[in-house]
Design a protein around this nucleic acid. Structure first.
Lengths: 122, 122
DNA sequence: CCCAGGTACCTTGCACCGCATGGAACCCGG
DNA sequence: CCGGGTTCCATGCGGTGCAAGGTACCTGGG
């Protein structure tokens, strides 16, 4: 590890949000687990592995936020496709509300009293 | 509780952020634990209790992100005041970076596909 | 004088979830 | 037949928010 580059452990940050990011990606389409890992891994700031997603998907299924259906693949074992339920859609929009409030709270706290260097503008 | 108001458990969301919210509030001033609970509780979306803050503050002290000093109070037991260290300031700004990236990732995922018309402006 | 209630500190234990690890089954090309 | 890609899954550890409970100090009322 280089000094001066104190990387912070951000895995705790992702807690409680990955779940809904998955739901968000499932809006409108069916997708399978491995695909979700690839998709979300490509988003900057969203590291995700199989060890994360499969237990997560099991929980979503158990809570009836998604339904699943097996389908054959031409290049590999069969895939389990996930689709949003009504409850899943509602959970997602509920979360979006809570997220907005929380995000603003954190932004506000981080910005307050930070008027020295401003190199980005929104 | 009204029906149709399915509140989501947001405590998971707070994981890994409260710590830095505390550091943020400590920028420039000294504050004591009980005060921090009251301050953060007033921010919308930031529920916090003593059971959360004291273990958290202990950890911050152990990691040398804050230093403390006892001071008498005129109305009650003595207070332990917390002050940011250099390491604390650095940890805070490191987090702010990571937070911005993560927040944008979540925002992006939540917004995508939320539009009914098929023309985007970005 | 004592005791209820506010202030202020703290510890202990549970629950939750991200992720590392490891494994199974299927297919293909060499 | 063997290695490597794809696709699924289960298990266990570790960090952390929070509820519950405990101590000590001060003030005011009965």
């Amino acid at each position: 590890m280089e000094p001066g580059k104190t990387r912070i452990d951000l895995s705790q940050l992702r807690r409680g949000t990955i779940e809904y990011c998955v739901l968000a990606v499932l809006r409108g389409t069916e997708r399978y687990g491995f695909e979700l890992v690839r998709m979300l891994s490509e988003v900057d700031g969203m590291v995700i592995t199989e060890g994360t997603i499969y237990p997560l998907l099991s929980r979503l299924r158990q809570e009836k936020l998604v339904t699943t259906s097996w389908r054959e693949s031409e290049s590999g074992p069969p895939r389990r496709y996930y689709r949003l339920t009504k409850a899943g859609e509602r959970a997602l929009s509920d979360f979006a509300e809570g997220w907005a409030v929380f995000r603003n709270a954190v932004d506000q706290l981080l910005e307050e009293g930070e008027e020295k260097d401003d190199h980005d503008e929104r």
